[in-house]
Simulated scan of single mutants.
Amino acid sequence: MKVLHLISGGDTGGAKTHIINLCSKLKNLVKLKIICFMYGPFYDEVKNAGIDIDVIPQRSRFDLSVVHKIYQMIEHEGYDIIHCHGARANFIGMFLKRKVKNIPFITTIHSDFDLDFQDVFYKRIIFSYLNKVSLKRFDYFISVGSALISKIKSLGIDEERIFLLYNGFDFAKEISFEEKDTFLTRYIDKSLYQSKTIVGNLSRLYKVKGLDVFIKAANLVVKDNPNVIFLIGGSGPQKEFLQNMINEFKLNDRVFLLGNIKNPYDFFNAIDINVISSYSETFPYSILEATALEKCCISSKVGSVPDLIEDGENGFLFEVGDYKELSKKIETLLNNKELITTFGIRLSQKAKEKFSAENMAKTQFEIYKKIMQKR
């Protein structure tokens, strides 16, 4: 079986991590190739993972000259399945499907497509619309979490054309990270974090990530807990807004914006409690990355996160946007440090059993076989 994956190549979030983890294992089950539309960190990481990848550059998002080039590649190399990831690849896939006959087109839905571009007005209006138009042209859909299935069905898609595939992580791979002091002293003075519990949130600085919830919770926690600080890792358009929040709450020595983090494991190694405060998610990879280091996690009750985190058993969940509940969950852990370790171990064990990259690749292969049988 030969599968061609299409993806933008500028991806920095879960889609990037998903396709690298997936294809690093799937390449042992099918003959696959990835095409992206720009050079950058994504291309480099995929190449370094030993996955077959090429770039067909686009001059702009609407440069459709790449369609014919991909079509020629399909005709020459004889692919059985075309598999797209993300709005740009979906847009290209819509035009490619008009030229390619009798080959199933699949797209993986990595996030809520109504929220993908909400931070930039014109992108929200134009790109969200074009993506939904493109999605309706596909034959089959893969949802990376159970919570997204109803969203896909809202496009008028029959449930029999939708498959569930949880994100998976390669827990067997070697993980490298800097020493805690080496990493932290690059951003803050040692006296500000020494002997303190560190609560972290690693995400892109977008509205949907709910970092305002995280800061509001921190504002409540620090009032009665002098030995805790809060770190936010990531970059994005909300940086100024979030810094203003920190200034207004007078949290400059308790909450820190670290900026872009090249290696997430540097961040997760340095913190004690990992927080996901998003308003919407499917299945965030940051939880799986943190569990690889046995980090305790508190998350908003979004997407398929409850399929991994069992509230009070291996972590904590809180209602979306409820910063008061989040603050109480953090304080519970601060008052019971042993629970931080216990939750971290339990969560890691469940993640390794049910959310491995090997399981993800095997499930994807079975999905491909079912689709080929349908055709």
Rank of each mutant, 00 (worst) to 15 (best):
I175T: 05
L293Q: 05
F316M: 08
L96P: 03
P237L: 11
N244G: 04
A87R: 13
E294Y: 07
T341Q: 09
T363K: 15
F171G: 04
Y279P: 11
I125D: 02
M372L: 15
D116C: 07
G145V: 08
V305D: 13
K27M: 03
R61S: 10
K324W: 00
V228H: 04
L192M: 02
N247H: 12
A87Y: 15
I157C: 06
V320G: 05
K262M: 10
A172W: 02
R61P: 02
N48Q: 07
K250R: 14
L326V: 03
A49W: 00
V66F: 03
H76R: 13
K350E: 13
I215A: 02
Y79E: 06
K2N: 04
T342S: 12
F121H: 07
R346S: 13
F283R: 10
Q238I: 05
F138A: 10
T282K: 00
S146W: 07
S60Y: 07
L130Y: 14
K328Y: 10
L231D: 07
L96N: 05
D170A: 07
V222G: 00
D311W: 09
K27Q: 02
I142E: 09
N219F: 04
H76M: 06
Y71Q: 11
Y285Q: 11
G234A: 04
L4E: 00
N167W: 08
C36W: 00
Y129W: 13
Y206G: 00
R204P: 03
L26R: 00
I157Q: 05
S143M: 06
G234K: 04
I20E: 00
I162M: 10
A270R: 04
S277H: 05
L184G: 09
N269G: 13
Q58H: 00
G312R: 04
G200N: 01
S203A: 15
V30M: 03
S191H: 02
G233M: 09
I215G: 01
G14F: 05
S304K: 14
F113E: 11
L164S: 11
L96E: 06
G40V: 04
Y140M: 11
F183R: 03
K223V: 15
T108D: 12
P306T: 13
R375T: 12
R124S: 15
V3D: 00
L317W: 14
R124K: 13
D139T: 05
K209E: 02
F127V: 09
I106F: 13
T197M: 09
T282W: 01
S278G: 14
S299E: 11
K262H: 14
K25G: 00
R375C: 11
V213K: 02
L308I: 10
S154F: 03
E313V: 14
T363E: 15
N225Y: 15
T332G: 04
L293I: 07
L317M: 14
I82W: 06
